[in-house]
Each structure stands twice: as structure tokens, then as C-alpha cells.
Amino acid sequence: MSDPRPKRTRQRAAAKAVRPSLSDAALAGAEAACGYRFKDKALLVRGLTHPSAVSAADSLQHANQRLEFLGDRVLNLVIAERLIDRRRNETEGDLAPRLNRLVKKGACADAFRHAGLNAFILLSDNEVSSGGRDRESTLGDACEAVIAAIYLDGGLSAARKFIEKAWAPQFTSGPAETKDPKTLLQELVQGQGHPLPEYVVTSRSGPDHAPVYEVEVRIAPHGQAAATGASKRDAERHAAARMLEQLKGNT
């Protein structure tokens, strides 16, 4: 016997039936990892839902991309507040690279792993088989989304507590790089009197939820260097780092 409901109703019901979720035990584990108990647990599930785990039609409302956008802003605010409070004798020029180091995608991925949340990400089978559960961009995006979920559910104070906990090893570690490779490369070529580096996107591949950009950096007297990344910014940074290695090898 055929389903008497309208086609659109049947489609919505089917989509809802396969929408990803976490078991009660997994939800409890994820909350424990966050150090926060959600009033609206659907927010946590959404923060942990990678776009590959839902249909394209459901992605806007049930995947974590929009939360990621908000979480990035909350993270920047909390880290900036912390730096202003803890490093009162440093200038803006000193603080900016510290902020950039602590909010970049790799730092978010490390914080997510430290919190123990990577086991709870909801991914498609294809994404899991391609290494998505360990992919830096996937973990970093999910971390930002979880920050937003906590912020929306419990406010800035709750989000700040999670960030302080998840970023603890990075706060206490010795200083890493203080300048972005793009900044170092720009300073180098300017010091030599050469034109500024030019960055060109030479290709983009992969699905929308996991793109791969290839970027080439060009410096007139030194040639070019290419690299890939999950975003144009990451690819540019990697290309700049590769060019710096080439220039060091030529000196």
C-alpha cells in the first residue's frame, strides 16, 4: 500500500529519520568532555555534526557550519581578552601574532583533541574512511561550532570556561612561531627591495564541505612555490612557508 502523504511530507519524514544523533551515553560523554551540561542538547549534536552527515537540504539547519562562524568570533574575543589581561606590557604588534597562533585551525584542532571530543563527531561513512575524524580542518571547525553551541546555551562565561580548559596546554606551552609565514616572507622580500609576494589560486578540488585549494606564491626574482590547504588562507600560509624554505636553501 502506497503512503498517502504528499511527496514533500514523505521526503521531510525520510530526512528526519536518517538525521544523525548521539546516543544518551555518547551525549553524556560529549558533555563531560565539554565540561558543560547542555539545557538544549540539540545544540551540542548540531555542533558535532559535519556537513557530510546530513543531506544538502538539511545542511544549513542541522550541520555545524553556521555555528562554526559564530564560534570563531567567540573564540577570538575570549583569547583577545585573555591576552590583554595576561600580557599588559605588550603592544598590539606583539599581541596580534599570539592571537593568530591561538585561534588558527590547527590550534582549534589541538584543543578539540585535548578536550577528548574528536570521538563524538558525526560524519558520513565516506568521510570517516577518508580520514575525516583526524583531519585538522574537520576538528578545528567542530571545535569552533561547539564553542558556539556552549555560548548559545550557557552564555559567554560557559564558553570561556571551555576555552580555558581546552586550550590549557597551548596557554602554558613555550612560545611557538610569533609570526605567520606570509608575514615573514613579506618582510624578507621587502628588506631585499623586491615587490611583494603574489598569491594565485591555481586549483580547487574536493567537495564543498572539504575543499582543497592549491595556491602558488610568486616573487619576481625568486620564482614560485606551491602548496595546498583546506582554505585559501591555509594554502597561502603553506606556500609562503615553502618559499621561505627555498630561499633559505639558496643562501
Rank of each mutant, 00 (worst) to 15 (best):
S231Y: 11
A109D: 04
Q170C: 01
K7R: 12
I121E: 00
L27K: 07
K232L: 04
K179V: 10
A159Q: 03
D125Y: 03
L44P: 12
R133I: 01
L60M: 12
A15T: 01
E68C: 14
A80H: 11
D24F: 02
L75Q: 06
A241W: 14
I163H: 04
Y36C: 02
E245D: 15
V45S: 03
G29F: 13
V201D: 06
R242H: 15
A149W: 07
A239M: 05
R233D: 14
Y36G: 03
A25W: 14
P175L: 11
A115T: 11
A149D: 08
L122W: 07
L99Y: 01
R88W: 11
E214F: 01
L156F: 14
P4L: 04
M1K: 10
G154H: 01
L185C: 12
I163L: 08
R5K: 12
T9Q: 14
K41Y: 00
K165I: 02
S205H: 12
P211G: 00
G93T: 00
A111D: 03
L188S: 08
A115H: 12
L123R: 06
L48I: 01
Y213F: 15
I163W: 06
P211V: 01
C34A: 01
V189C: 11
D125V: 02
L44W: 10
F162W: 14
V54G: 08
K165L: 01
I163V: 09
A28M: 13
A63V: 07
Q192T: 07
T172C: 09
R204S: 04
I147P: 04
H194A: 14
T202Y: 00
F162V: 12
Q186P: 05
S2Q: 03
E90N: 02
D3N: 10
M1S: 11
A176R: 09
E236H: 05
G106A: 07
M1F: 07
S205A: 13
G206S: 02
R135G: 05
H222Y: 15
G131W: 07
G131N: 01
R218P: 08
N100A: 13
K161Q: 06
T202V: 08
C143Q: 00
S52L: 12
N118L: 05
H209Q: 03
E164R: 09
D134V: 03
T183Y: 13
T91P: 06
T138N: 15
G93Y: 05
V45C: 03
S130A: 14
A13F: 07
G154P: 02
V103P: 08
K165M: 03
A226D: 05
N64D: 09
A142P: 00
G29E: 12
L44M: 06
V212W: 05
R135W: 10
L44I: 04
T49H: 06
V128E: 15
E31A: 06
F69V: 06
R237F: 08
P4E: 02
G131T: 00
P207T: 08
A109V: 03
E177S: 15
R37V: 10
A226L: 13
L95F: 09
P97Y: 04
K104Y: 13
P207L: 14
L156C: 09
A15F: 08
K16V: 00
P4A: 00
H238Q: 09
